[in-house]
Design a protein around this nucleic acid. Structure first.
Length: 601
DNA sequence: GCCGTCACG
DNA sequence: ACGTACGTGACGGCA
């Protein structure tokens, strides 16, 4: 593959600074990512003075930047002094790959990036959200056939990037920016052609700033309480371990599904159920079934629950508390999910336990700063409301317009009883059915979820669709669209290609069909909350309010709110979330507050 | 590095 | 006859 020289077309040489000072005295070129790497790994900024080679195009109102290091000298302007006004100029657009990252690093250096952002990582994501790899290296290779020089290659045997001679470091540093610059031209044309430009500029681009703020804000945790919980769990686990060894008649590694399988199915001769690729399954469904015939499985389940809580949450969270802020700063990834949702990592703040006694205990450790409260606002039944809007089913729409409990109503339809006579068991079944609809349920899937024969599940599904022709028709037309176009779309035109929709393999094809059904619903809900986040963020920016947005959990937003702002903020949040989109059904948001996340919920 | 498991929406 | 709910991330075990 012919390597294209980016540097033929793109001026990456340090250009004159806005003040007209020549920047050609820069030494020890150094890209921002390696700078950031040093800051992260050593915990301190190893660079006292940084010059920036920057090439920008006034006609296009765009800037492409390459921060580089220089050795401080009397006649060399401080690099940040040079670049700061450019990066902070809202009239100059910024081009880069994963700009949220750069924005956050620059903020640590006191530079507050403003203006329009051309993020080529986000462009790549919108063009194909099924892609798992959106690194600059991968995207550059895909679209420009340009093989980026590997960092390790440049580094060689040297310790840090600062040790790399300037002659080698400069082109490497420039390559990052040059590549993003070139990609921008191609990818943003493609966004236009694909009808994704508005989604980018109205949603994903402004969201970069919102997410940067959320990450920077972080959330406060009660570390003392976490230590207490850890000890409590330690005791529980010790007791359970002894009990398990005694029930098993020998010691073994409880955390090993393989060893557990030997105990359950060979030693105790219990009846195996489902199989996995590697052996018999020991998952919760299997163990619950086995619990009917032996005491051990239930204790294994208890052990697993506590072990999970301890290792994944109670013991892991304190390690991720930032020393400077004393808070946990998660990462919100904007380019991971195939549907348009965000994801959260390091730590994942979107899967913090909520159910049961221990869910409460763990959520109680997420607290508000003194004088503040946490405010939680979550969309009620958002995916079903979106489904109602997308499919136009009259019954579903009427239910939401009349503020009727949707699961009770579905139960009434399925079981043919008046709404007033629906019992809790029927409502539970209906709730599962409603979830099933969104997931593209099969009779088998529903029967597994409900623990009923497939025949009964099949009858329930038939009943449901007989009463919800709008839903049924929508499902069929969605599949037809997927087959014809090769992709499905959300309310805002976000696309997800479904290439397997034509697979000759039944299982693969049916899985693709479920994706096609679910993605517009899940993805539209993601579109909606992103709009709400941007609206709320703007309202906060335009005010003198001190409220901070701190988390998004798919259908919920969490805020840290000064007590004095509680009433006005609660009202504002509801207004912006409920009004984010106007659908054929009303949107309902539940707002709560408290000293901790559990109380707020 | 993959697998099974399980936490969340 | 086969294998099935949609979307994630983190953990420990094991090769």
């Amino acid at each position: 593959m012919k390597q294209r020289s980016l540097f033929d077309e793109v001026d990456t040489a340090p250009s004159p600074s806005p003040e007209g000072r020549p920047a050609d005295k820069i030494e020890n070129a150094r890209p921002i990512r390696e700078l950031a790497y040093d800051i992260e790994s050593t915990g301190k900024n190893p660079v006292s003075n940084i010059a920036v080679g920057i090439s920008f195009c006034k006609e296009k109102g765009a800037a492409c930047y390459v921060p580089v290091r220089h050795t401080a000298g009397p006649n060399i302007p401080d690099a940040f002094t040079v670049v700061k006004p450019v990066l902070e100029d809202g009239g100059i657009a910024k081009i880069g790959h994963n700009l949220k990252y750069d924005i956050l690093i620059l903020r640590k250096e006191g530079i507050h990036v403003a203006g329009k952002l051309y993020d080529t990582m986000l462009a790549s994501y919108l063009l194909n959200p099924n892609r798992t790899e959106h690194s600059l290296e991968s995207v550059g290779l895909e679209y420009l056939h340009h093989k980026k020089r590997a960092f390790t290659e440049v580094l060689g045997k040297r310790e840090t990037f600062a040790d790399v001679p300037v002659d080698e470091a400069t082109p490497y540093a420039a390559e990052d920016a040059a590549l993003a610059w070139e990609l921008r031209g191609m990818l943003f044309d493609m966004l236009e052609a694909e009808g994704l430009a508005t989604l980018y500029s109205d949603i994903e681009m402004p969201l970069i700033y919102v997410l940067a703020d959320i990450e920077q804000n972080g959330i406060k945790v009660d570390t003392k309480r976490l230590e207490e919980l850890s000890k409590e769990l330690e005791l529980e686990l010790d007791a359970l371990q002894s009990k398990i060894y005694s029930l098993a008649g020998e010691e073994f590694n409880i955390n090993s599904p393989k060893q557990l399988g030997r105990i359950l199915f060979d030693v105790l001769k219990l009846k195996p159920g489902k199989k996995t690729k590697t052996g018999f399954s020991t998952n919760v469904d299997v163990l619950e079934e086995l619990a009917k015939s032996h005491d051990l499985p239930a204790e294994i389940l208890n052990y697993r629950t506590y072990y999970k809580l301890k290792t994944t949450y109670v013991d892991a969270l304190p390690k991720l508390i930032n020393e400077q802020t004393g808070r946990i700063h998660t990462s919100f990834n904007q380019t991971v999910t195939a549907t348009g949702r965000l994801s959260s990592s390091d730590p994942n703040m979107q899967n913090i336990p909520v159910r049961g006694e221990w869910g409460t205990k763990i959520r109680e450790v997420f607290i508000a700063e003194k004088g503040n409260v946490l405010v939680s606002a979550d969309y009620s039944q958002i995916e079903l409301r979106i489904l109602a809007h997308l499919c136009g089913d009259e019954g579903l729409i009427a239910a939401f317009r009349n503020n009727i409990d949707i699961h009770t109503r579905t139960a009434s339809e399925i079981f043919g009883v008046p709404v007033e006579e629906v019992d809790i068991e029927q409502r539970r079944v209906a709730k599962t059915v409603n979830f099933g609809v969104i997931y593209g349920m099969s009779a088998f899937g529903l029967s597994e979820a409900l623990g009923i024969p497939a025949k009964e599940a099949s009858a329930i599904i038939d009943h449901y669709f007989a009463r919800h022709r709008g839903v049924q028709d929508y499902m069929e037309s969605t599949l037809e669209t997927a087959r014809a176009d090769g992709y499905v779309k959300t309310l805002l035109g976000r696309k997800r290609p479904i290439p397997e929709i034509h697979s000759p393999n039944n299982n693969i094809r049916m899985q693709a069909e479920r994706m096609a059904i679910n993605s517009p619903v899940q993805g539209s809900a993601a579109d909606l909350i992103k709009i709400a986040m941007i609206r709320i963020w703007k309202r906060l920016k335009d005010s003198t309010l001190k409220t901070r947005m701190i988390l998004q959990i798919h259908d919920e937003l969490l805020f840290e709110v000064p007590e004095a702002e509680l009433d006005i903020i609660s009202k504002m949040i509801r207004e912006e979330m409920e009004g984010a989109l106007t659908l054929s059904v009303p949107l309902h948001v539940e707002v709560g507050h408290g000293r901790n996340w559990s109380e707020a919920h």
